[in-house]
Design a protein around this nucleic acid. Structure first.
Length: 423
RNA sequence: GGCCCAUUCGUCUAGUGGCCUAGGACACCGCCCUCUCACGGCGGCGGCACGGGUUCGAAUCCCGUAUGGGCCUCCA
């Protein structure tokens, strides 16, 4: 039997990270078993907003690296086949009419299934309500349409969130009454925020789009998501898509909910960023910058890569780090001008203007002044970058260029002089 | 309220009766490296929700309690 699963995003709004994790498990399972992964779009509404939302969802899935083998429509409003089956149940006495609606008659006894994640789960049928399967206006309800759609689509494994556990016994009873074969059910745990409640905007980014604009790498987010409720062993963290496909098993999905740890994601993204080849790094960075509509000269951006690759864990940290190369800076007004003046003099005739020669010159300066590098470089850094935190000082000076560097050093000296004159 | 599910360091998790004086990772703390910030290296802190069983032996099995979550809609 070949595997067929489905991903069923809600077309209202953007792709939620919790739902994506469920899709990810479906996708990994399908790919590992050489099966099919369908994208099921609910077509309750054909409005333009919904259409745009669906496009947005597809775009986000694609960005993350989750593809699909076909699209099916979940025809909640106009499911002819569902109504036929409901009539059949009615005729067979497995359902009955109730104020214009059709209710499914729960059988006697109990119902159980072997959940691929949680093991055997059993319900007493007497606790299950006779649920409405077709509303009085003729529209099938979700708990009827969903198993029927799975049946029509030939879904072999229903991998979904744990909030569906309670719906499963009724869906199984319906499928049995229809004489259908049952899919394998796998209920995966939810993802919560730090307060133990369902992950929402209050906790941080939740849409795939937000992570994208936050400067995360899709491969890192993919890796992180796979580790939320699943693990390969007791020590493996970094895994490529290929490795995840090879190693994923439903049996190793845990049954307790997980808390989304933004700090760990940041760390993992940093690991991925640091492992990138410089040209790959530049490519991803440039793409991100253009998505953010930041328009800095490409060659300069390229040149900054070796300076910042080790230092940032999200692209969103990049602009503040190198802004001094593209825009004027404003060092603190009370900066001690003496070292800047000495540095300016020392660097004025330096040749060639390269990081190594700049470093040699500035270290000589330290000795001449009897200052420790730590102390002496601080005001220079502030004058050049406007910040206490920056890429390497010598490389920064090289990239900024001699003219602009001397200019900035000189500005601090001149500023101090005019402040003294005022006083 | 009823039914169902869950409960190992702050967080993600390993653990399926002896390998556990419970392992790894993030975070945190300390030290080292060091021009800042990072990276990296070394070390540390820190957990089996609780109570009963079963067993020679339990984080692991059973029962109960507590806590959290889900479902109980002619919502999806």
């Amino acid at each position: 039997m070949s595997v067929r699963v489905r991903m069923a995003p809600s077309p209202t709004g953007f792709l939620h990270i919790g739902g994506v994790r469920t899709f990810l498990f479906n996708w990994l399972f399908a790919r590992q078993h050489d099966g099919e992964c369908l994208l099921r779009i609910e077509n309750t509404d054909t409005g333009r907003e919904v259409a745009e939302s669906v496009e947005q969802i597809k775009e986000s899935l694609t960005w993350l690296g989750i593809d699909w083998d076909g699209e099916v429509a979940f025809q909640l409003d106009s499911a002819g086949r569902a109504r036929e089956l409901a009539q059949q149940l009615l005729a067979e006495g497995r359902a009955y009419e109730d104020e214009g609606a059709i209710r499914f008659r729960q059988p006697a006894g109990s119902v159980a299934w072997d959940d691929a994640v949680r093991g055997r789960i059993e319900f007493q049928n007497e606790h299950l309500p006779d649920l409405v399967i077709v509303r009085s206006d003729g529209r099938p309800t979700y708990n009827f349409a969903s198993p029927v759609e799975d049946l029509i689509d030939g879904i072999t494994h229903v991998i979904r969130g744990e909030d569906h556990v309670s719906n499963t016994p009724s869906q199984i009873n319906i499928l049995r009454a229809l004489g259908a074969e049952l899919p394998v059910y796998a209920h995966v745990p939810n993802i919560n925020g730090a307060d133990g409640r369902k992950l929402s905007k209050r906790h941080g980014a939740v849409s795939i789009d937000a992570f994208r604009s936050g400067g995360y790498l899709p491969s890192a987010l993919f890796n992180f998501l796979a580790l939320l409720g699943w693990s390969f062993d007791d020590k493996t963290t970094i895994m490529s898509r290929r490795e995840l496909v090879d190693r994923f098993t439903l049996a190793r999905v845990v049954s307790s909910p997980a808390t989304f740890d933004y700090e760990k994601l940041d760390w993992l993204n940093g690991v991925y960023l640091r492992n990138l080849q410089p040209d790959e790094y530049a490519h991803f960075l440039l793409t991100w910058l253009s998505e953010q509509q930041i328009d800095w000269p490409r060659t300069t951006v390229d040149a900054t890569v070796p300076l910042i690759q080790e230092k940032i864990e999200r692209f969103s940290q990049y602009p503040d780090f190198v802004r001094f190369l593209f825009e004027p800076v404003t060092p603190p007004a009370d900066l001690d001008p003496r070292i800047c003046a000495a540095a300016r003099e020392k660097l004025a005739e330096l040749d060639p203007w390269e990081a190594v020669t700049i470093e040699r010159a500035l270290r000589e300066l330290c000795e001449e002044l009897g200052e420790k590098p730590r102390q002496a470089f601080a005001p220079i850094r502030l004058a050049i970058t406007g910040s206490k935190v920056s890429p390497g000082l010598f490389e920064s000076l090289e990239l900024l260029g001699r003219d602009e560097s001397l200019e900035r050093l000189g500005a601090v000296v001149a500023g101090a002089a005019s402040a003294a004159a005022d006083a």
